[in-house]
Amino acid sequence: MEIRQEREQDYPEIYRLVKEAFAASQHADGREQDLVEALRKGSAYLPELALVAEEDGLLAGHIMLTRAGVGDAPVLVLAPLSVRPEFQRQGVGTALMERAHEIARARGEEYILVLGSEEYYPRAGYRPAEELGVTVPEGIPSANFMALRLREDAEPLGGTVAYAPEFGL
C-alpha cells in the first residue's frame, strides 16, 4: 500500500470512496464527500495533508487535515477519514493517520482535533479535547470531541474551536 498526497485526477474517485465509506455509518450526514470538495476550495485546505492510500491502483482510503483555530492558536482538524468498505479493519485508516501525523509534526503543527468515535481515535493517541483546554462545542458529546498533541512542547490550548466555514459549525 502506498500513501501519497491526493492529486486532482483522484478527485472523482475520492468523492465515490468517501460516499461509500460513510454510507453505512450511523453518525454520517451523507454529505461528507461534499465537505471534502468544499474544503479543497477553501482557505483552510492544506494540500500536503490531504492523503490517499492506494492499493494495486485502487484508492483504499483518504484523509484530510485542514486549518482551524482555538483562541489564537492554529490547530488542524481531521475530517474526514474515509476507508472504502472492502478495505476497512485492515489498518488503512491507522496508516493514513500515522502518515498525516508525521507530516503535520514535520510542519511544526502542535494539535489535531477530531469529532469521531471514542473507541477508534484513542488508539491513535487522541483524548478528550477538554483535557487539553478546548471547550467542547454545544450539542457534541465530550467523549467524541478529541485532540492529539503532536509536540510535547506545544503551548497549552484554551477556548473554543473556530472551524473552517465549510464545516457549517
Rank of each mutant, 00 (worst) to 15 (best):
residue 1 M to C: 01
residue 3 I to E: 04
residue 3 I to V: 13
residue 4 R to G: 00
residue 7 R to I: 01
residue 8 E to V: 08
residue 9 Q to A: 15
residue 12 P to M: 11
residue 13 E to N: 13
residue 15 Y to W: 14
residue 16 R to I: 11
residue 17 L to M: 07
residue 19 K to N: 14
residue 24 A to C: 00
residue 24 A to Y: 06
residue 25 S to F: 13
residue 28 A to W: 12
residue 30 G to E: 13
residue 35 L to T: 05
residue 36 V to H: 06
residue 37 E to L: 14
residue 38 A to D: 00
residue 40 R to Q: 06
residue 42 G to L: 04
residue 43 S to Y: 07
residue 48 E to V: 00
residue 50 A to R: 01
residue 51 L to A: 01
residue 52 V to Y: 11
residue 58 L to E: 15
residue 60 A to N: 12
residue 62 H to S: 12
residue 69 G to Q: 15
residue 69 G to C: 14
residue 71 G to L: 06
residue 73 A to L: 13
residue 79 A to G: 06
residue 82 S to A: 15
residue 83 V to L: 08
residue 83 V to P: 01
residue 90 Q to F: 00
residue 91 G to Q: 10
residue 96 L to Q: 09
residue 99 R to D: 00
residue 100 A to K: 02
residue 105 R to H: 02
residue 105 R to N: 02
residue 107 R to H: 04
residue 107 R to G: 01
residue 107 R to M: 03
residue 110 E to I: 04
residue 115 L to R: 09
residue 116 G to T: 03
residue 117 S to W: 08
residue 118 E to M: 07
residue 120 Y to A: 11
residue 121 Y to N: 09
residue 121 Y to V: 09
residue 125 G to L: 10
residue 126 Y to V: 12
residue 126 Y to I: 11
residue 126 Y to H: 12
residue 129 A to P: 06
residue 129 A to F: 12
residue 133 G to H: 08
residue 135 T to Y: 08
residue 137 P to Y: 13
residue 137 P to G: 11
residue 137 P to S: 11
residue 138 E to V: 04
residue 139 G to P: 12
residue 141 P to I: 14
residue 142 S to E: 03
residue 144 N to I: 05
residue 145 F to C: 03
residue 146 M to G: 11
residue 147 A to V: 11
residue 149 R to M: 09
residue 152 E to Q: 11
residue 153 D to I: 10
residue 157 L to A: 09
residue 157 L to N: 06
residue 159 G to T: 05
residue 159 G to D: 09
residue 160 T to M: 14
residue 160 T to G: 15
residue 160 T to A: 15
residue 161 V to E: 06
residue 161 V to L: 09
residue 164 A to D: 14
residue 168 G to A: 03
